[in-house]
Design a protein around this nucleic acid. Sequence first.
DNA 1: CGAGTTGTTGACAAGCCTCAAGTATCGTGG
DNA 2: CCACGATACTTGAGGCTTGTCAACAACTCG
Lengths: 248, 248
Amino acid sequence: MFEVADPYDCLNCPLQDCPGLRPLERRQRAYMNDFKKGELRFERGDTILEEGEDANHLYTVLEGVLIRFRSLEDGRRQIVNFMFPGDLVGLQGAFDEPASHSVEALIEARLCVFPRSDFVSLIKEHPRLGYDITWLAAKEETELEGHIVSLGQRSAKERVVFLAAWLVDRALATGLADEGNRLTIPVTQSQIADMLGLSLVHTNRTIRALDREGLVEWNSRELCVPNMDKAADYAGFDRAGRSSRPFI
Amino acid sequence: MFEVADPYDCLNCPLQDCPGLRPLERRQRAYMNDFKKGELRFERGDTILEEGEDANHLYTVLEGVLIRFRSLEDGRRQIVNFMFPGDLVGLQGAFDEPASHSVEALIEARLCVFPRSDFVSLIKEHPRLGYDITWLAAKEETELEGHIVSLGQRSAKERVVFLAAWLVDRALATGLADEGNRLTIPVTQSQIADMLGLSLVHTNRTIRALDREGLVEWNSRELCVPNMDKAADYAGFDRAGRSSRPFI
DNA sequence: CGAGTTGTTGACAAGCCTCAAGTATCGTGG
DNA sequence: CCACGATACTTGAGGCTTGTCAACAACTCG
């Protein structure tokens, strides 16, 4: 991890051109620029936030993909969600309490840093941005809801297909996947297992089976869902509301 | 369901005295009163919000306990969370999209109704309240995170103990449980199963086993966790930050 | 080239699910 | 007040999904 020497000016925020994101107005970008404290870069595997830590920053993902997870004392680990460009890190969890989860970079990532303390004044001066932040928090909750349904009700195969479809969908919206529904990202089978609540071995078998059936192709480098409609149907995945999300 | 004839004046909001909630300032209560549109009462089993519906209201739980769930086409159902006094209904899920889940009353409940459309102006005029709403959304997310960990990593017995401890903890904070950690609430084993991602039969066996071991006593009328510390330890339940939550 | 990580596969065990039947509880109407 | 049906709880038996243990192959990196 290190600080980026030449951070973006918010007026030229790269997220402005992201297909799935609603661009900010010029005024808002100008304001955010004052609010912005700098940028950080992380390599794959770097820890961005650690469970138990008192976080006094908020981060917006500019580039990259992160995972958010919680660990149990005995070594078990549950990945709670993946985060894509435009997502806010640190919004999850009550502000005044230590972080309930850790966040780690899955690929090289670039994050925009905001001080948390200025948050109230941000809301005050730009209520619309405050609204957007609440919107993001609410949206994240809907996503978690989806994962909860997977964990609680779906079989191993359904879970893998659901996660694959969900990832590709989010990647398409953030320009990380191409038209072939192919996403280049190094996800370990162990990470998939920790996300889906399955054992490593069974995750492997399930992925192999889905590969043979042609539903999902997922190796350590990339993920591809050849037929999204078929996959979505198989796993009960509701292809995201096409509405674009706000970002900060 | 019917409208309450003599709703509370926000200045005398019953939640002000709730042990786990941070009271509102007089000014804020006065403002909320303008914002408030009325009160609704629901009986056990009544539907408050239906999946797919365009909700244009927000509700604060004044009294009662609710469940929030999502249904799959084939009849499977996943209960996502329980809601207690002070919780905001309708905050979950992006505002402009149809509800992703249904909400139902578990016991007789009384809800305070707010129009959603005035939400931006509320944030504008009382940024502090906007902050609190975001805080609540973030807190809910932490709770879902906890349930995700349960579903993904814990055994059937651990899940039941975790849920029991969690419910009692929340009930204590909202004055619904007594000092004996006893909570009078009619939860069906089928509902427990749908929350924990277990079959009805296995849920029953698990509860019986825990009863024999004296860890959790849970029948169709009430729930009791005789030794909270022991239970919390057994299930890896982190007894909630003692910090009191805000409410609207 | 060797060490460490990740992926793959087999054999077996265990946890959980399904089917099935029976019992308790509760509200309702005769 | 009892009979009845409906709902919820309980328990057994057997099967399937998933987990565990173990060994090996493939890959990555210094």
